[in-house]
């Protein structure tokens, strides 16, 4: 059977999954703390795609559809907030760990 070509829920979910994988890859391989943050943003975006895809394709009522949008909105807001706080932490790290934001050198968690 030919896979369906017109975009459906599954297509959006696959894009979300790939975006998520890129984000994870970014988080676990980057050395630069800012790079890691970018990965986190990718992950949050993939979550948003899923929210809206389900809202658009699956929810039975209009209200349920709007709930997905509201969650995505909250998600965006929290992502922006997270970005602000995390970058502040990065700046603090930069100042307190000898002018570096290299994740390889931030190993104080082991102590």
């Amino acid at each position: 059977m030919m896979p369906q070509m017109t975009p459906s829920l599954v297509h959006f979910l696959i894009v979300g999954a790939l975006l998520f994988a890129c984000g994870i890859l970014c988080v676990i391989t980057r050395r630069n703390a800012v790079g890691v943050l970018m990965g986190v943003e990718l992950i949050l975006n993939s979550a948003n795609i899923n929210f809206l895809a389900f809202a658009h394709f699956s929810s039975q009522s209009l209200q349920g559809g709007i709930d997905g949008h509201v969650f995505a909105l909250f998600c965006i807001v929290l992502a922006a907030l997270e970005c602000a706080v995390a970058l502040a932490i990065v700046m603090a790290i930069y100042r307190n760990f000898n002018k570096t934001i290299d994740m390889e050198e931030l190993t104080t968690l082991r102590e």
Partner: peptide, 15 residues
């Protein structure tokens, strides 16, 4: 494409 016009605008503005 998911008919989320408002969220798309927010995405551009915020992100």
């Amino acid at each position: 494409l998911l008919s989320a016009d408002f969220i798309a605008a927010t995405q551009v503005l915020v992100y």
